[in-house]
Nucleic acid binder design. Sequence first.
DNA 1: ATAGTTCATCGCAAATATACGATTAATATT
DNA 2: AATATTAATCGTATATTTGCGATGAACTAT
Lengths: 110, 110
Amino acid sequence: MNKTLQHIEYSEESKELARYAKALGHPVRLVILKHLSNQSCCYTGDLVDVLPLAQSTISQHLKELKDAGLIEGEVNPPKIRYCIHQESWQKAKELFDTLFKQDFGGIQCC
Amino acid sequence: MNKTLQHIEYSEESKELARYAKALGHPVRLVILKHLSNQSCCYTGDLVDVLPLAQSTISQHLKELKDAGLIEGEVNPPKIRYCIHQESWQKAKELFDTLFKQDFGGIQCC
DNA sequence: ATAGTTCATCGCAAATATACGATTAATATT
DNA sequence: AATATTAATCGTATATTTGCGATGAACTAT
């Protein structure tokens, strides 16, 4: 067969949405975001206190959320204050809205 | 430190949302869902024709979407017709809506 | 019965993700 | 300068994901 060298060109939207979805694809990160939303912001240490995970592990999850663009950190020595990244959050919201806007309910098929 | 044996109890919501998000966290699967929504339904073979990936790979992605509950397959020998799973799709939509409903725009912090 | 079609599954390799403890970097405090 | 605090990063181990080709199962058509 050998159909491919697997270099697929995805749309920017697909890539961006997949990136957000992937970042949201772990329960710990959802808990972190929830915590962040409750407090509006919080320090890494707060999360370390709350979650039964090593500090390094939490830091890593924060990094993934940050890399995906969903949160941002403000240095506030010696702590770091994390918050939702407004713009990206809005962008993610829109992308998911668009994805789910397809109202499959109308087209009955199976 | 040894803070944990890492048995965290997540809420059902977190687990379910994470499961959906994870399934959506790969561009190929988004393309598949888009294709599915365009045609309302389609056969595995259609996707194999469209995507530059091996049949087995596509089958695997379909399995993941099915395991997450986002799609369902109707046997239509010798083919299988895949469609969006209405209920789960709606449930996912709601969970994401709830997640993004938090209007962080109001609470300025950083 | 035999051969053909369609798609899932197996077995494998490579890459990525997840967790940890230990270390390092940055800054504040003494 | 020396110490303490906070959090990122490094190194490592294990598990999961992603991809492939090959094989197998289910059903059709000859």
